[in-house]
Design a protein around this nucleic acid. Structure first.
Lengths: 182, 182
DNA sequence: ACCTGAACACCGTTCAAGT
DNA sequence: ACCTGAACACCGTTCAAGT
């Protein structure tokens, strides 16, 4: 029963780690830099996070929550096809604006987090207005695979053969939507 | 002008590093372990590779070369659609069999290597029999994005919501091929 | 209850010195 | 020419000790 004079908070620590990762990439995230940017020393972090990976998991969760919110906003259309295009555009912009944070997303393993479920939910909604019920899950997997693959390759410099990458993104999305309709 | 008594070779070092990455992931690759598994000490590696990243680049290149060879073999059909399905199946199997090596692939940046070009070539060939010339590049980007996204998500445990992942893979591929034909 | 200094093991990298 | 031991800086993690 002591004053509990916490110098910082879990959220502040996660925000600091997220900022460092966004700037320098997860490989450059050191616990010393996180600690010093919230005014404590590295060993104190172990009172709040089991280890470096647990802190990174918390950052990933916060990134997924932000992505889910952005996708929710983008899904405010009536037409399911417009919803899908808007979400896809938002998804890609999110990845391009903060590539180092985007890279965190797929590395979770294990059960899908609440934030991960929230990020997929609007896609399921849109697809339920476009395809038969039993097709929603594979259709969602097709679109998430396409989106993740495209953004992942793009931010890794995988599209260097010329041509418009913007147009290719839209072309592929249209191909999939067309294929889903038929 | 000395005997040049090399205890090992670049290829042997790359093979050793590839084996360690395949087993434990790239994060666990230490130069000490690579060196000891080819019978030298860590500092000697710097006579052959600029730094740890350069060694990893060499491993990635060797992985891409193997992938390219596997895809070439898979493309030995007459029908372009069968070529695409066979290449996609081979691509996914490659990723699932050696996920830690697969993860190396997108992280290159910069100019596409010869190995990377060789890996895409058979897809371009197949597509040239399926779509108009000016559509080959965006169509290839659509398919590579889908394939990379699917495999990447699958090996990271991203498909945990039930249903058959095998069927979903085939479903999405068919959707894209259908969309490309129309 | 939260924080810290000191310590440990481990690692990438450099470099002078060996043969 | 290729290899090594020694050294350096850096980092994740633990833990006893502070308040």
């Amino acid at each position: 029963m002591c004053p509990a004079l916490a110098k910082t908070s879990d959220d502040e620590i996660v925000a600091a780690a997220r900022a460092i990762i966004a700037q320098n990439g997860v490989d450059k995230l050191s616990l010393g830099s996180v600690a010093s940017s919230v005014g404590i020393k590295a060993p104190s972090l172990y009172k709040r996070f089991a280890d470096r990976d647990a802190l990174i998991d918390a950052v990933r969760d916060s990134v997924l929550t932000r992505l889910a919110k952005a996708l929710e906003d983008a899904a405010r259309h009536r037409d399911p096809e417009k919803q899908i295009v808007a979400m896809a555009t938002t998804y890609r912009r999110f990845g391009k604006e903060q590539p180092e944070l985007y890279r965190l997303i797929p590395a979770s393993g294990g059960e899908p987090s609440d934030a991960a479920r929230a990020a997929i939910a609007p896609l399921f909604d849109a697809l339920s207005g476009l395809v038969a019920a039993e097709t929603i899950l594979p259709a969602a997997r097709c679109i998430t695979a396409y989106l993740h693959g495209f953004v992942s390759l793009e931010i890794s410099g995988g599209f260097q053969l010329g041509g418009s990458v913007d147009q290719a993104f839209r072309f592929g999305l249209d191909v999939i939507v067309k294929g889903l309709r038929s």
